[in-house]
Design a protein around this nucleic acid. Structure first.
Length: 318
DNA sequence: GAACCCCTGTTG
DNA sequence: CAACAGGGGTTC
């Protein structure tokens, strides 16, 4: 499940069902899901042996669990998870765990792409289901964060996994400094959409919400960061934060059964999208037919009237 | 900073 | 068949 609102929906679903639980076993059905784990399954098993989950944290699209040993001491490593393009983390109760596997009928088996499961001491399983295997699970050592603020939503302190060291704070993070992010955006020459998608300035924005934010702020995807005023850069960031908050409030954006929460439920935000996937339909603001173009290998949806290219004459310097 | 790769599946 | 899909890491 891709962008920040969808991942936060998953975190909130996992938190009450995993924090306080002990990890009894790691079941790996497809080792490719451990691509980011050095040492593979053996190393991960070692890191998880006898541990208890003490927090479920998210920064941007990265999730992690804090781990403590039998004595309650932090192990110094976090259990990282990323959902990639098609990943789901779902809780399976003991009743479901023993339920008949193949249900007849047209509905495809939701466990068809199960790659890995964590078996917890209360009998539940956390399944990592991932059709394309761009996601993964791995252990990462905790390091001190750059500032003293909590490392992410759900974090008890500033300790940050090394795997998330280069990851900026996201727009749902109270410690995010928007004016500073806006200033940083304006020092880069790349198109503003690429900058929103790069996770080192601000994290958690993906293709859907980048298009939505730029539509909202009436800015074209290929406007160079250096061509943005501070006011405009801030407006884009605020729009991105607001659209993601609205999506989160209704359970995130889902187009199909691939994007669901920890209980397998879909969100409702797709019906509220103004730009993404609406090419060929009229702009809800001005009625002009929205367009879709390929920008750096990904689709960009925009209104050719509301979102004009920056005038060539305007100075392109910081 | 952009191309290419990692994968599997659906759709035109 | 080719094009495309919400991610990001590595490579020129």
């Amino acid at each position: 499940m891709p962008e920040l609102p969808e991942v936060e929906v998953v975190r909130r679903g996992l938190e009450p069902r995993t924090v306080g639980r002990r990890i009894e076993d790691l079941e790996v059905l497809d080792p490719r899901i451990l691509r980011r784990q050095s040492g593979g399954v053996d190393r991960l098993r070692g890191a998880l042996a006898g541990t208890r989950m003490t927090a479920a944290v998210r920064r941007g699209k990265f999730l992690w669990w804090r781990l403590a040993d039998e004595t309650g001491q932090d192990t110094g490593e976090a259990l990282m998870a990323h959902l990639g393009m098609s990943g789901q983390l779902r809780v399976r109760t003991p009743a479901e765990a023993t339920a008949p596997a193949a249900s007849e009928g047209p509905a495809p088996d939701p466990l068809r792409h199960r790659r890995l499961s964590l078996h917890l001491d209360d009998g539940t399983a956390i399944d990592l289901i991932d059709q394309r295997i761009f996601g993964g699970l791995w252990a990462s050592p905790l390091e001190p964060g750059a500032d003293g603020a909590p490392a992410g939503l759900g974090s008890p302190d500033a300790l940050l996994p090394a795997a998330a060291a280069g990851l900026a704070r996201d727009l749902l993070d109270p410690a995010a400094d928007l004016p500073a992010v806006a200033r940083a955006l304006r020092t880069r020459r790349a198109g503003v959409k690429s900058l929103l998608l790069a996770q080192d300035l601000v994290s958690g924005i993906g293709n859907i919400y980048a298009d939505e934010a730029l539509w909202e702020a009436r800015t074209r995807f290929d406007t160079p960061g250096t061509a943005l005023s501070q006011r405009r850069a801030l407006a884009i960031l605020r729009a991105a934060g607001e659209v993601m908050e609205r999506a989160l409030a209704v359970g995130g954006t889902s187009f199909d059964a691939l994007y669901v929460d920890a209980d397998g439920r879909s969100g409702y935000f797709a019906r509220s999208l103004a730009a993404y996937g609406r090419d060929g339909s009229p702009c809800t603001r001005c009625g002009t037919v929205l367009r879709r173009v390929l920008h750096q290998g990904r689709s960009s949806h925009f209104c050719p009237r509301c979102q004009r290219p920056v005038p060539r004459s305007r100075k392109d310097v910081p």
